[in-house]
Amino acid sequence: MKDYYPDKRSLWAIKLLTIPLVAAIWAAAGIFIPFDTIVNIVRTAAVIIGVVFSFIYCPLLFRSLKYTVTDSEVKRSGGVFIKKFQSVRYSSVQYITTARSFLSQYTGLNFIVYFVYGGQLRLLFLSRSDADEIMASAPLSQAERGSGDVS
């Protein structure tokens, strides 16, 4: 049994991604909205939402999230306003999808989604090494990989 926690680097990645997003909303508001009052409201709201999301909500979420992997099941617990505990047995997993961002070994944006009967279990913001380790222990990872030749 092993516990995994979200990678702190992904928190920095989220903060860095929020800046251009807020900047884009700032610029778009100035270009497309003709009324100054509404432009100011939209810009202020975008900045406040961006700051709250990056500096308050995400750190609290990261602090609460924990993933536990055993021989027979995967568990996830965490949440900011509502604490959720989820557990899924390997025997009910139908298939798995992994998502990795560009330069994920530096950004920490690695995700694993287990598709099971009746829903999904998502492991978010894992480091590259943790994601590889979890996939290695997953029941679907025993298969031989094909060759690198593409046709």
């Binding site: 139908q94 298939y95 798995i96 999808t97 992994t98 998502a99 990795r100 961002s101 560009f102 994920s104 679907l140 990872s141 025993q142 298969a143 031989e144 990989r145 094909g146």
Partner: peptide
């Protein structure tokens, strides 16, 4: 593979789906 189908997808966000 011998016992599963793997689909690699995505340019900036790489998705891999493993279906036994």
């Amino acid at each position: 593979g011998n016992d599963m189908l793997i689909h690699h997808d995505g340019v900036f966000i790489k998705l891999e789906t493993y279906i036994p």
